[in-house]
């Protein structure tokens, strides 16, 4: 993977309705925040090109609807994802409790080859409302450890409003996803896996 080849990462953002998924995506991609985002129906998409370890990476970010009843249609969105961002709202404990079901649902529907080590990252959004916090940091730490003791998921506390932690969080998930792709290259016979697989798959007949 040393040669400069266009790499595409498909990143899915999941989490309860109103936790700030759309705001996070827009803050990361456009460095803008607005109170005026409409509720997402189905899914929205943005792409951002970044350089990681001298590699040009296109991040294709999929912002999904938080309404649970759209979950069962998620297959179309989750398929071929390289990484998944789970978002909760630190002022809303229910959105934290629902992380489990979002994670399980994603793994069930996306069906990644190696679910144990699939790149997840957890974001506790809205830290600008610190005085209304109702999910303590220790809780999320424990949760991340409980999911995978050897390699706990990374988590960030972010504020889409004040751009706190957003850049780092997305950089991290991109790195983890890339790393994971390379690991797969090593351990799986080369003929069956190609990091840019997602790109060739999804861009289909165009190239």
């Amino acid at each position: 993977m040393a040669h400069r080849k266009k790499v595409l990462l498909k990143v899915i953002i999941l989490g309860d309705s109103g936790v700030g998924k759309t705001s996070l995506m827009n803050q990361y991609v456009n460095q803008k925040f607005s109170n005026q985002y409409k509720a997402t129906i189905g899914a929205d998409f943005l792409t951002k090109e970044i350089t990681i370890d001298e590699k040009l990476v296109t991040m294709q970010i999929w912002d999904t609807a938080g309404q649970e009843r759209f979950q069962s249609l998620g297959v179309a969105f989750y398929r071929g994802a390289d990484a998944c961002v789970l978002v909760y709202d630190i002022t809303n404990p229910i959105s934290f409790e629902k992380l489990d079901s979002w994670r399980d649902e994603f793994l069930a529907q996306a069906g990644p080859r190696d679910p144990e080590n699939f790149p997840f990252i957890v974001l506790g959004n809205k830290v600008d409302q610190e005085n209304e916090r109702r999910v303590p940091t220790q809780k999320i730490e424990l949760w991340c450890k409980a999911k995978n003791a050897q390699q706990p998921m990374s988590f960030f506390e972010t504020s889409a409003k004040e751009a706190t932690g957003v850049e780092e969080a997305f950089q991290t998930i991109a790195k983890i996803a890339l790393q994971k792709g390379q690991d797969d290259d090593i351990f799986v016979p080369a003929a069956t896996i190609d990091l840019s697989g997602a790109a060739t798959k999804s861009s289909g007949g165009c190239c």
């Binding site: 899914a43 969105f77 007949g205």
Partner: peptide, 21 residues
């Protein structure tokens, strides 16, 4: 279809909001 651009990517929004979005 060959691009993988499925109806789910736009249809949900079209029909559940009567195209308003």
């Amino acid at each position: 279809e060959s691009c993988g651009f499925e109806v789910y990517l736009y249809g949900i929004e079209w029909f559940t909001t009567l195209f308003s979005c």
